[in-house]
Design a protein around this nucleic acid. Structure first.
Length: 666
DNA sequence: CTGCCGTTGATTCA
DNA sequence: TGAATCAACGGCAG
């Protein structure tokens, strides 16, 4: 056979890092290094997107985690080729890349596919500009087990709403890819001359992260290549942050791979892992792998984790040793992650909100979403001004609810940027359908700011799940802020750790400090206060009484959800879009009322420190009405709270609907 | 249509 | 420790 002569056509490659701060199992990086011939110049770059710096909620802990990941990756590149690094540029890709591709004579642009709604828009523009400039664009899936767009397509273009659907659609897409090899060498960069590249000034407003900064963000001002002109990874200070990160969790591919190595030594733990059996109260060490932030930044490949786990389980099956499987196993967790990504890919922006989301139920929360301030969802007839619900929300956010289990979790979230999955369930249920009756979108915003592993698809999906607005519907299954904590941590060590003012309290009262007799409170250096939520008095640490009677709120929430389910509006219902949804709830409340429930009735067991029952001195003596037994609707009395606030009459329609589907049928 | 299941509730009772 | 109950949703298989 005659030798084939190949023409030498030098190529110059930009490898654009976004969701993939790693070298291992990166299909896009592998393609860039193996599918492009005659590479003359190669730059792995990061573009600091003003969207991320200003227009997304990113607290110091997540910023630091990202910076850690970037530094780790940059070092890895340097080890492969001392002339290399992660080239960090201070401008958004949509404006920078066209200029950069021209100045550096780029022939190939390569990146990992990102199906987030914002990223899709951004990438569409970048790809169009690149192709117009004659640059070859290569995109590879690497962030999820399957390409989320493909999964959505195989699911009929509809969002995957259950693990079954995801698995069925995924199977149609094909097998989950095996990891690709880690690169062992890297071409040199070319001459990185920016003299011809004029920098775009970023649009800074609104700056969601202003609260964290004590000075102007200095990264953009320092020029495209940073203060030293060396394309270095920025520091938190350079970004203007006053606060240092407080999270003990460190970012970086080498960190997570080393951690995994150690965790996989315990084969029993990995192979029999069942998420619902891991403790939300465990700390140092936590009960789970802590891979979520690494999956978010791409310092860990989900396929690498998937196949390492799957291979180990195969081996154990052959050895006839116990194993776990989806949905509770480690691989099951990754399948749920893909489910949320595919659902988001199908719905776009509306996935992360109620408004215009065809799969998210509409619930008239006492504190609605702030998102969409310009449309009628909340500006129409919605009673935005509910100071009590707003207070509940703030106290939840700040870890001062008076429920130690909730407060401990929220304080761990703020200081460490990570909380266990079941802890997320507990506080999310509490904020929404199982306590405060506040919109899940408010909670999601707090998580977005504080979590180091915040992933829009997973966060929005899980909040919808927990608020019973999508994915999950059993709203009568409600997490108790007392019983759930007790179940996992009867000693109260988790609470003692994160709510130090309760550290010395007897375990008998650790989840309900207001029940502790004065003498016990004094011994613990504690003052449970009905007024103040923090501070000290007579040398005793103040901890607040519960901000509401949980059982009473729980009933209000369940009735509210029942009503919302009956009314049956979704985020894209005309009445939600045009702001006339309230009429539907009023009509429902006036409808036929036979076959109804009585009020919650009975004692809630609420006691003050002296042991008096406050709400019903006789205990639960109100006879519970059976479904068949009551023939008349009993209008629910207006809500009264410990603080003595009375709900306005107009609100009461939101509280109750006493019509059952069964009665409608008959 | 029925019946069962759905990653992760709480309480009571045997 | 496990099962039944509470009051009862929606997806899915049959």
């Amino acid at each position: 056979m005659a030798p084939k002569f190949k023409k030498y056509t030098p190529t110059r490659v930009l490898y654009w890092h976004r969701t993939d701060l790693r070298l291992h199992d990166s299909p896009a990086l592998h393609a860039a290094l193996n599918e492009i011939d005659d590479i003359e110049a190669f730059w792995p770059i990061w573009c600091w997107d003003p969207h991320y710096v200003y227009h997304a909620r990113v607290g110091p802990n997540r910023f630091q985690f990202l910076i850690d990941c970037q530094n780790d990756l940059s070092s890895s590149y340097q080890r492969l080729n001392p002339k290399q690094k992660l080239w960090v540029l201070r401008e958004g890709a949509t404006t920078l890349l066209p200029k950069l591709m021209k100045a550096w004579k780029i022939t190939h642009l390569v990146f990992e596919k990102d199906t987030d709604a914002y990223a899709k828009e951004r990438d569409t523009k970048v790809v169009r500009d690149a192709e117009e400039a004659g640059v070859t664009v290569m995109i590879r899936n690497g962030r999820t087990l399957w390409d989320s767009d493909e999964v959505a397509k195989k699911n009929g273009g509809k969002p995957t709403m259950s693990a079954t659907q995801l698995q069925a659609a995924g199977a149609k897409v094909g097998d989950i890819s095996r990891p690709v090899p880690t690169p062992e060498k890297l071409p040199d960069p070319g001459d990185a001359d920016l003299s011809a590249v004029e920098q775009e000034r970023p649009e800074r407003h609104p700056d969601f992260n202003e609260q964290f900064r004590d000075s102007e963000e200095k990264s953009y001002a320092s020029g495209l290549a940073g203060p030293k002109g060396d394309y270095a990874v920025p520091t938190l200070q350079e970004l203007g942050f006053k606060k240092q990160a407080t999270s003990p969790h460190k970012g970086g591919e080498s960190v997570v791979l080393e951690n995994l190595e150690k965790m996989f030594e315990d084969e029993d733990y990995i192979a029999t892992f069942e998420k619902p059996r891991t403790s939300p109260a465990a700390f140092e060490p936590q009960s789970t792998l802590l891979t979520s932030p690494h999956l978010h930044f791409g310092s860990l490949s989900c396929r690498y984790l998937y196949w390492r786990t799957e291979d180990l389980i195969d081996k154990r099956r052959k050895e006839k040793k116990p194993t776990s499987g989806p949905p509770t196993s480690i691989t099951g967790q990754l399948l749920f992650r893909d489910m949320y990504f595919a659902a988001q890919a199908a719905l776009g922006y509306s996935f992360a909100q109620t408004y215009d989301n065809p799969h998210c139920r509409f619930v008239p929360w006492h504190l609605p979403s702030k998102v969409n301030v310009d449309n009628k969802l909340i500006s129409g007839e919605y009673e935005v001004d509910d100071p009590q619900a707003e207070e509940y929300f703030h106290r939840w956010r700040d870890g001062k609810t008076g429920f130690p289990w909730i407060d401990a979790i929220m304080r761990q979230l703020r200081s460490e940027g990570w909380i266990h999955h079941l802890a997320r369930h507990s506080v999310a249920c509490f904020l929404t359908r199982g306590g405060c009756y506040v919109s899940w979108e408010r909670g999601a915003e707090v998580f977005e700011e504080l979590l180091i592993d915040h992933e829009t698809a997973c966060n929005a999906g899980n909040w919808q799940w927990l608020s019973c607005t999508a994915f999950f519907a059993q709203f009568y299954r409600c997490y108790s802020p007392i019983a759930f904590g007790k179940k996992w941590d009867p000693e109260g060590n988790f609470v003692r750790r994160y709510v130090p003012e309760l550290a010395k309290l007897d375990k008998k009262y650790i989840y309900e400090p207001y029940k502790a007799p004065i003498a016990d409170q004094k011994r613990a250096g504690l003052l449970v206060s009905g007024g103040k939520t923090e501070g000290e008095e007579d040398g005793r640490h103040i901890y607040p009484k519960p901000m509401f009677d949980f059982n009473e709120q729980r009933e209000i929430c369940i009735q509210g959800l029942k009503t919302a389910y009956h009314v049956g509006l979704y985020g894209n219902s005309p009445a939600v879009i045009d702001g006339t949804w309230k009429k539907h709830f009023d009509d429902a409340a006036e409808g036929p009322t036979e076959g109804t429930e009585g009020g919650p009735g009975g004692s809630t067991g609420w006691q003050d420190a002296e042991g008096h029952e406050e709400y019903d001195p006789d205990g639960n003596k109100t006879p519970k009405l059976s479904r068949e037994g009551s023939s008349k609707a009993r209008p629910k009395s207006p809500r009264t709270t410990r603080a003595g606030h009375k709900r306005e009459a107009s609100q009461s329609t939101l509280d109750v609907l006493v019509q059952k589907k069964s009665s409608k049928k008959s």
